[in-house]
């Protein structure tokens, strides 16, 4: 596990929002943004916001966020004095490991939280960030 990235401290309410979204959207993939700040060597996630999955076709294996929703997210962060720290999405019936599709469009610096959801509910949550070599490395969730 890499230690080049700041650890994530996800507030329980934000974590519950992301997990709940994953369960509500099951068997489809959910997606959303999360916000907070970097403080004292920790990336603190204070809130998460659900975003519509606009992917056409089978949403059980794919998600997409519209450009307009992305612009709104940036504006929201600016208005609230928060930082847009990353994106979460779910992997229904699949481990929380980034796929090639996740890697292909990943941006540097963002945290990518993945919620693995089984039929019984959320199984586990992991977070990843792109390295300078454009590979995903796992982030520590405190």
């Amino acid at each position: 596990m890499s230690h080049q990235f700041l650890p994530l401290d996800i507030h329980p309410s934000a974590m519950n929002d992301m997990k709940g979204h994953g369960e509500d959207a099951f068997p489809n993939e959910c997606c959303g943004f999360f916000y907070g700040e970097e403080k004292n060597g920790v990336r603190v996630v204070s809130s998460a916001k659900r975003i519509e999955n606009v992917k056409e076709g089978d949403q059980r294996r794919r998600f997409e966020i519209s450009g307009k929703d992305y612009m709104k997210a940036e504006r929201f962060a600016t208005q609230e004095g928060l930082t847009l720290l990353g994106i979460y999405h779910s992997h229904p019936l699949h481990p929380a490991i980034p796929s090639e599709h996740d890697l292909a469009v990943a941006m540097p610096w963002f945290s990518y939280v993945i919620v693995s959801v089984e039929k019984e509910g959320v199984d586990h949550v992991r977070s990843w960030q792109l390295s300078t070599e454009r590979q995903f490395e796992e982030e520590i969730i405190k």
Partner: peptide, 30 residues
């Protein structure tokens, strides 16, 4: 307006236009 629906990178701009760089946010489990 998405420049893909205009003239791509050749889309003309004028002073006071606001241009946004938007990362495509997508992915999936397989």
């Amino acid at each position: 307006e998405d420049i893909n629906e205009l003239e791509g990178a050749d889309t003309k701009i004028e002073d006071r236009d606001e241009v946004s760089i938007i990362p495509a946010i997508a992915g999936g489990s397989k």
